[in-house]
Amino acid sequence: MSFIAFREVGFRYGEREDAGNSILRGLDLEISRGTFYVLLGPSGCGKTTALNLLAGFEAPRSGSVLVEGRPVQQPGMDRVVIFQGDDSLYPWLTALENVEFPLRMMGLGAAERRSRAEAWLARVGLANHAAKFPHQLSGGMKQRIQIARALVCDAPVLLMDEPFGALDAQTRTILQDELVDICAGSGATVLFITHDIAEAIILADRIGVMRAGPGSALKDEFELDLPRPRNRGSVEFAAVYDRIQRVLGEEVQKVVMREAAA
């Protein structure tokens, strides 16, 4: 039994039942415990939708999404989410208070909340910005708050939807390396969505590529056994990049052709 499993998952938004309205059809995907799983796929294929199903924000129309064999019923602190963009931070709370939020919901006392949140803020390099509000911080800093807020929960599963998508290339590289360090120690199982093949290779134990929609499912998977830390300039890196690029490129091409026709 795998730790996380999508079994024959079908999903559509709304009630129209025609094939064109189907987002996911027969999606099978398994993630074993402790794996950093990266999902790639052309824009609009249903990556976010799949993540939302695992988070419990949506329910599958058919099939099942299981964690340790039990169907996902609702969102919970065992599967914390790092959201795309920064709309999920609370603007009236400081960086520290945002990180304390999950601990407050757990009912921890003020002192313990504070020391745990401070430790994580320091871990993501924001020790000196604890008292600032989100609007006073850069995009990269806000994503760091999100990472700290998620990791402070010690959750067994982390769900990340293009967490670095809106950042500049430099900041992104730095955060990728930090995330590798953080996850290496935590033993968490991660589902990470990105459009960036290089990012996928830096981070992943395993990479899944999704088909173009409608009715998307997994097209291909890659097991990455390159040693870490991975070198973006190495020959092995380039070889893997090339293999993934070919599989993903085909799907992206389909989407481009379809949009050109429409």
Binding site: P75, F83, G85, D87, L89, F101, P102, M105, C153
Partner: peptide, 21 residues
């Protein structure tokens, strides 16, 4: 505020806590 509400659910807020916080 979809993501704020979703974050509240993820991080364990019940309906009263979501209202309050």
């Amino acid at each position: 505020h979809r993501d704020r509400m979703r974050a509240a659910r993820v991080f364990g807020a019940g309906s009263w806590e979501t209202f309050r916080h």
